[in-house]
Write a protein that binds this DNA or RNA. Sequence first.
DNA 1: CTGAAAGCGCTAACAA
DNA 2: TTGTTAGCGCTTTCAG
Lengths: 331, 331
Amino acid sequence: MGVLLKDVAKALNLSKATVSWILSGKGEEKGFSEATIKLVKESAARMGYSPNLLARSLSVGSTKIIALIVPAIDDTFYSQMAQAVEKQAQKRGYTLIISSSESNADKESRLIRALRDQQVDGLIVAPSKGEFSAISDMMKERYPFVLIDRYYPELETNYVIVNNEASSREIVSRLVGAGCRRVALLTTDTQLLVMERRAQGYREALERAGIGVDPALCVEVKRANYAEAIAGGLDALFERCPDVDGFFFSTHYLALETMRYFIDRGIDYRSGFRFACFHTTTALDILAPEMLVTLMPIDEMGACAVDMLLENIRNKEEFRPQGIVLDNRIG
Amino acid sequence: MGVLLKDVAKALNLSKATVSWILSGKGEEKGFSEATIKLVKESAARMGYSPNLLARSLSVGSTKIIALIVPAIDDTFYSQMAQAVEKQAQKRGYTLIISSSESNADKESRLIRALRDQQVDGLIVAPSKGEFSAISDMMKERYPFVLIDRYYPELETNYVIVNNEASSREIVSRLVGAGCRRVALLTTDTQLLVMERRAQGYREALERAGIGVDPALCVEVKRANYAEAIAGGLDALFERCPDVDGFFFSTHYLALETMRYFIDRGIDYRSGFRFACFHTTTALDILAPEMLVTLMPIDEMGACAVDMLLENIRNKEEFRPQGIVLDNRIG
DNA sequence: CTGAAAGCGCTAACAA
DNA sequence: TTGTTAGCGCTTTCAG
């Protein structure tokens, strides 16, 4: 340990309390003399004192730390989200801890437990599929948390999500409006509610346009080995439906891998098809500049989640869970 | 607060000490009866006890937490590094905290201070340029830390880096070996030592090949607005040297933006030039499959850094700073 | 085999 | 205007 509160107190012949008050800015309020305030502050700085936050947190019963759990920190969507959340947390005087659950329900539970044990004041989590017990534990014990991006409609929790269905419907409608009649759906992780909602939006768009859904146009790719799975899926799709004229990707990496497919096979995809994708990612704008994408309001999501969480933390007892559904723009 | 150690002790008519020992696995060792051990463990679980790690850490004087500071968590390189470090930390029984300094020296200093105040046991940091005081503070106070990816040769610190110069030389040599005679250098952030080393490797390769360095082929792009700056730089380059036949990019996003430039202008870059890049990133393999890239040993870097740090933490007093330079493979 | 009690570094009521 | 003191929840030495 370096220099302690006790040390600077002793050096000045003052009590720990005095020093503590002054250093935490309650000097004037408490009515200490200008002289002592200045003395204490300067000495502390000179001696290189810096507080042990563990001790302080234990004492005050709050760490001023919140944590974010995402499924994969190397997914651009989530790393952008982390930036957004961090920014807002900082603005509100909180420190953010970022953790990645690697889309593993088990690890997610352990992380939640570990972070709570670490006494972080609250959690923002983009849950992996299958996780449940740790979430409902938090509910039971009224531990402050908010779900982001994904949520459980049957649970009355805080959440911040986007309108998956509506924006998918909208973006697919535009494809149709641009002349597409045979729009394929590429999707994955269909157990995830978000994905199902996006697929639903796709179906609605086609039905409303009087085109109807052709199951032959719908390709589901398993997440595990999607890099190869996509090629197979697309091969089969073109076999079944040589007349496909558009694509809707329910998530960004499907779009990216599809571009790879086209390029690998030397297919001139840019003139042959129209594309739409839920969210976007690095290089997608290079590979397919004409692709329609939903512009997810990541900063807003992050800000909302933080604010909601902090409100919950402040109130704890009377706080009622809130849900916010944000809109996507399309670009 | 939920249920405390005291609570389970009271419920069982045992002392806090007994419960504490048993729950931290020192039950047998201390010679408690099978019966009590089982009883305590089961009751604790049933009552939903879970320890306050703040209190424990304060008591034992160690948090079992280490932190990683990167310049930008949304840069694929650093998010991969975060994954790697996290994995090794976990393997060694440590929790990892990830923070992003946004390439801001000031924020980096504040982060270092904040994390130290938080009593994390040690730090792994990929320093931004310009940071110095917080680093030398850590040295003075013998606080355990290791620099990763970037380092200060004049400081005797722990570090884990790659051989920037050698692998740049190697990869540029391959370009030459493949027939290139007019290889351009695209670089950025030249104040960063890593970048200078890479440029140096480029020069050496050309000199050893008896080609010599033509300054007209060297383009430096300012980091701030590189997206636009690159286009201008490339325009000027082609003006000056219409005979350029190869490119060496000192970092991945320069390569990506250059691909964008080619595609935007409809230039058939895949047959006209050969490319080499330091490190790679999403979609680069789609855009330019033939590009030579250095395969950075990210997992190894992470593992090394963690192990070095933990060793330093264990020894603290007698520990001598170590430097490790890892090799890149080329693919 | 188990318990009492001191202490980790800081805060905050209560005194003076 | 400043000091005393009792915690925060856990670990660990020393007794029994």
